[in-house]
Design a binder for these strands. Structure first.
Lengths: 121, 121
DNA sequence: GTTAAATAACGTAAAAATACGTTATTATTA
DNA sequence: TAATAATAACGTATTTTTACGTTATTTAAC
């Protein structure tokens, strides 16, 4: 799976949220100053070329929709991060989170307890 | 902190590992077919421009070294990932890891138990 | 209906990343 | 030491990303 660039990722988040949207819909979500329509248009076209979105034409207007889900992209990114910065070990990542990210151990234990048995692998 | 591109990141990993190195040192670490010296040279120069490495000149040769640590970059990347794909919550990330990444709950509990008290925040 | 404003995608300019040829200097060898 | 090979950074060509101007179509207003 190709990697999103900074701007591409920003726009993808909006597309993921709206699910099906035109370029104008995307611009509406962006804060001021609003970029020109053409700017967002070309970013979306590149996202399509890279395989992140596809479109359906309604008359002259394109409605874009994601073909790679946010969940899927996030999952892949996580795996890549772990592979690159945590020796490929999710265990190490968890250690890091507890030791460096100020996440309370008890909170995590509680999370673990809330997970139904069937998902325990 | 600027984001590494795919190639940039690949080279950074080698620089992190070697710690101080010339362009030739980097090429030596790369598998065949070896890219031209000039290719790696320009990637490293861009890494320097972006603030990931700096260099010290020894005669005509530059010795490069990281000025952003692997640990630091990984940490920042993790935070960004969590912010973008796990609602900014490390807790949610941990849930995901347990539920979707086939990491055994008992293994994590063991990790938690091994962390000394002082680090429990 | 005709004009004006809004909105569409397209093409392309500008900037950044990728990739290498070229040239200069250093090291090797005969 | 002269010729050759190896190795350096630099400059630049190519591709990709970023960003908009332009033109065409649609919608709104009169």
């Amino acid at each position: 799976m190709k990697k999103l660039t900074k701007t591409g990722e920003e726009i993808m988040h909006i597309i993921w949220q709206l699910n099906r949207c035109t370029v104008s819909d995307i611009i509406q979500q962006l804060g001021s100053p609003k970029p020109p329509h053409s700017t967002i248009s070309s970013i979306v076209r590149i996202l399509e070329k890279k395989g992140f979105v596809d479109h359906k034409a309604y008359g002259r207007t394109y409605e874009y929709f994601p073909i790679i889900s946010k969940k899927n992209y996030g999952k892949t990114s996580l795996q890549q991060l772990v592979s690159n910065y945590f020796e490929g070990s999710m265990d190490r990542l968890v250690s890091h989170i507890v030791e460096e990210e100020k996440v309370d151990v008890e909170a995590i234990k509680k999370i673990l307890d809330e997970i139904p048995d069937e998902e325990w692998k």
